[in-house]
């Protein structure tokens, strides 16, 4: 499976090291994807890297990826400019259970860049808002400067059908919002635990404590979904790098129902 060329339409700096790219297919076409799926992005002469899709599933002709520059390939992706071309393979993996969550409250808990793979789910929920109960977004970042999609979050906070809570680990001058890790938002969040579905993405330690807090509120392990991150090189289940116990994260994940991986989630270095 080889990459298709996509051209950079727009590039926005989100934080110091994080950029959002909008891509259009060279020669037309589109890419239909489900919220939570990912693509392999290929930069000519540098390499390939798995990045979740963070755009609107209802707009398949415009592919959106939010990328943090942490390695050689992601740094090269972040250096791309309008008009540059990169290769895309995908979409891959199983995403968020937005269809199965119909009729339920939906609690989205995001840590840092973990908001990127959750944004398509939120777009989907808002586009079919009448199908869901309460929709809650709990978002934590390290500092106010590390918040992704800041203007969009402001718009979301203005809606009456969406409950948005934001917190930062460390405040800087001028911040008048919540301070503390994202799990501190869970006890006060307004949702009905037995009828809620939780979608969680962030660093593994953040997800671990989020699950603990949600369990304390009464959300069952079969109602919590987490998106896992592992080294991936093929995205086809062949290269073996993304194994997480019996699962290939690229193929069986990246989103897992928590009760299905509960036994190994707490094992270090698995």
């Amino acid at each position: 499976m080889v990459p298709r060329p996509w051209r950079v339409l727009g590039r926005r700096q989100e934080t110091r090291d994080t950029f959002t790219l909008e891509l259009e297919p060279v020669g037309g076409g589109d890419m239909r994807f489900g919220p939570g799926q990912f693509n392999m992005l290929y930069v000519f002469g540098v390499g390939e890297v798995p990045i979740s899709i963070s755009g609107d599933p209802a707009r398949p002709a415009c592919l959106v990826h939010t990328v943090r520059a942490v390695g050689s390939v992601t740094a090269a992706v972040c250096r791309l400019r309008r008009g540059d071309v990169l290769g895309v393979r995908g979409p891959f993996g199983h995403g968020w259970p937005v269809a199965e969550a119909a009729g339920e409250d939906v609690v989205i808990v995001a840590g840092g860049i973990g908001l990127a793979p959750l944004r398509p789910a939120l777009y989907h929920l808002l586009a079919a808002r009448e199908k869901y109960g309460r929709v809650v977004l709990l978002y934590g970042a390290r500092t106010p400067q590390d918040l992704l999609y800041a203007r969009e979050i402001e718009r979301w906070r203005g809606r009456f059908d969406l409950d948005v809570q934001v917190t930062v680990d460390a405040a800087t001058g001028g911040w008048r919002g919540n301070v503390g890790v994202v799990t501190t938002l869970i006890p006060g969040a307004r949702f009905d635990p037995p009828h809620a579905v939780a979608l969680i993405c962030g660093p593994e330690v953040m997800m671990r404590f989020t699950i603990r807090e949600l369990q304390a509120r009464g959300v069952g392990p079969a109602r919590m979904f987490i998106s896992m991150e592992r080294n991936m090189q093929c995205a086809l289940g062949f290269c073996g790098h993304c194994q997480f116990g019996p699962a290939f994260v690229c193929r069986d994940g990246p989103v897992f129902r928590f009760d299905r991986i509960q036994g190994m989630f707490g094992v270090r270095e698995i």
Binding site: V2, P3, R4, P5, R7, V26, Y42, F44, D84, V85, L86, G87
Partner: peptide
């Protein structure tokens, strides 16, 4: 070798 890529006037072309 999985594929070859070439830089061209309209971006990159990939040959499986």
């Amino acid at each position: 070798r999985l594929w070859r890529a070439r830089r061209g006037p309209s971006g990159i072309t990939v040959e499986e």
